[in-house]
Each structure stands twice: as structure tokens, then as C-alpha cells.
Amino acid sequence: MDIIVCIKQVPDTTEVKINPETNTLIREGVPSIINPFDENAIEEALRLREKHGGKVTVITMGPPQAKEALKQAIAMGADDVALVSDKAFAGSDTWATSYTLAQTIKKIGRFDIIFCGKQAIDGDTAQVGPGIAEWLNIPQITFAVKVELQGDKIKVERLLEEANEVVEVPLPCMLTVVKQINEPRVSSLKGMMKAKKTEIKTFSAADVDADPLKTGHNGSPTRVVKIFTPPPKGGGEMLCGSTEEMVSSLISRLKERKTI
């Protein structure tokens, strides 16, 4: 069983603050983390390996400092990692990112399952996983909350809005996972030692035979034209008095507004 996990290093968006004067993101001091859903993806890959044998390879596309995320993946138990990094990748949107990752996966060669996170918390697009599947021409199953290998097929439960859908998909395939699928393990001491010693392989655009017309800004159909902070919502009215009084004034206001 050869499993590839795609992870992204992201700023911890719960720590991001807005500079009220310039209306821009303050990213200084904001820690970089593995995208939370991608930790679930690594965990699920490790569990499958533990049960069925095989190899887990974790890859990321990003700047050189994304190596840290890969070291963490090794510490968790990944067998192999690879960084795809090149100036040519700057400005990639999901179209170019999924192309570049698919090229990398082709270079790596063998795989039975590709795991991605449901979405990355910085961009929140949930587009890269299905994009990779399309470039590789394999089936995709998104929002997996339960995964069970049955011979050369996988039975997957998908977390939908109102229910869970159970599907069956043949290998090879691409799965994106939601948070509820598992609880990611903490790194072991042995893993951390290994991570320290591991030399991280880096691929350039040329190494993965990436077409310059399809990578980075060049290869990205979308353009960001404006960034702004959402206008602050004006606060409303604080009700006062005892619990009973507050409840009464709330109900009369809601009735006035014809809300209830």
C-alpha cells in the first residue's frame, strides 16, 4: 500500500489579527502550523499503514521553510517526505497548485491512495484535492469521515450537510478528510530524533517536469484584485435587569420586529 499525503503549511488563523490603522493582516508572531485537516490526513494514512502495511510519503509545495511541516510529519511517523519548491511556483492558485502537486506525484510514481485535507484554513477553498485527482485522472472522494480498506476497494463514509453518505471506490483514488475522522497523534521521541537527522528532499519545477505555462502566477486563471477587512458590524443593544426582566424585554423586542 503506497500512500501519499499532501500537506500545507499555513498561518494559524486563530492568531491572525488585523491592524486597525492599515486594515491589513498582522502576520508577525503568528505561528506556522500544519493545516489542521492535513494532520488528520497524515494520521489516517499512518493508521492504514499500521493495519495493512506499506509506505506513507508526505509532500508539500511551498517555500523552503515549509520543511518544518515535513519534519513534523516525519516525527509523527511518515516514512518519506518531499518538498516541491521553486520561485516559479509563486502566486499559484488552486489550478496551478493542483497541477504542480500532480506532477510531483507522477514523479514519485507509485501510489494507491492520495490523502488531502478537506480544505486549507488560509484559503479555505477545498479545491486542491479534487484538482489533483483530475490531473491524475483518478476518482475523488471528498469529506471522508470514515475509511475502511476492503481488498482493492475502499469503503468511505462522507460527511454531508444532513447525513453521511457511504460510498465504495476502487484504488487508486484521492480522498479528502474532515476533522472528525480521527485524533492526530503526538510526535514520538524517536520520530523527533529521526526528523532531526533527515535531509529533506527538494524538487524544483524542472525536477517534476512542470510546464512553466501551468505553474505559479502564469498558470493561475484567477487573480486577486483587492483585499479588505470586512466592515465592522455595529453592536446592538445590551438588555439589562434580572433574568426575568431581560427575557421579557427580549421577547417584546422580538415581537415588535415580528421575528417571533
Partner: peptide, 12 residues
Amino acid sequence: AFGGNIMATIIS
């Protein structure tokens, strides 16, 4: 984007 901290306008 960024968990709702900012808004972005995008075109193709």
C-alpha cells in the same frame, strides 16, 4: 479568507 479575518475580491 484567513478564517474570515479578511475579504478578497478575485477575478478570472
